[in-house]
């Protein structure tokens, strides 16, 4: 019996947790708000909002914070995730 396929949300949480050990992490699927817009797909998981607070992001510019997060999620962005809203703070 194969394990249930993990969702993109689960993958995002797992990868960000491993990469940044965040003090707080919220990954919200906002795909429903973009129903019918560009990049939307049946089943959702195309538009996410990430709220992350992590000491690992301290001392970085906003652009650099976002780049680190985007790099960790490069596979997800390439495969399915169309939009990734990021609210990052150094905790």
């Amino acid at each position: 019996m194969s394990a249930p396929q993990s969702t993109y949300r689960d993958r995002i949480v797992t990868k960000l947790t491993a990469a940044f050990a965040p003090a707080a992490l919220d990954v919200i699927d906002e795909s429903a708000q973009h129903h019918g817009h560009g990049g939307w797909r049946e089943g959702g998981e195309t538009h996410f909002r990430v709220r992350i607070a992590a000491a690992a992001l301290a001392g970085l510019s906003r652009v650099e914070q976002h780049r680190r997060i985007n790099a960790v999620l490069a596979a997800e962005l390439a495969e399915r995730v169309h939009a990734l809203a990021i609210e990052a703070t150094a905790a």
């Binding site: 906003r62 976002h66 939009a83």
Partner: peptide
């Protein structure tokens, strides 16, 4: 930078929408 929009000021990349 994997997403659009992208804003540039005087030749410098500023960031995306967030």
């Amino acid at each position: 930078w994997p997403t659009i929009p992208q804003l540039y000021v005087k030749g410098e990349f500023i960031g995306g929408a967030d």
